[in-house]
């Protein structure tokens, strides 16, 4: 599947792209997806996630991950 098709579709396409990459996302409804990260989540995992969401260009993904993490603040 061409990941570029994902953005035109709804959650189902993204779930399919995730499964293709050996990942399971949480299905909330037709247009909402749950994504839980944990201690074991690696940089490669996040790239795979973004890939499934349609960020197919390696350079772009590289940029995404080079962003300085936002200042750590929780909404509480």
């Amino acid at each position: 599947m061409n990941p570029k098709q994902n953005l035109g579709g709804q959650a189902a396409d993204i779930h399919a792209a995730a499964v293709e990459r050996g990942m399971n996302f949480r299905s909330i409804d037709d247009s909402t997806i749950g994504l839980n990260l944990d201690e074991t989540t690696s940089r490669a995992d996040i790239l795979s996630v973004l890939d499934a969401f349609g960020a197919s260009d390696a350079e772009v993904r590289h940029h995404l991950l080079c962003w300085t993490p936002i200042v750590f603040s929780l909404s509480l």
Binding site: G8, Q10, A11, I14, I28, T32, I33, G34, L35
Partner: peptide, 10 residues
């Protein structure tokens, strides 16, 4: 905290 709810922009 570590769990994102993503609404797809169709």
């Amino acid at each position: 905290f570590d769990n994102l709810r993503v609404t797809i922009n169709g």
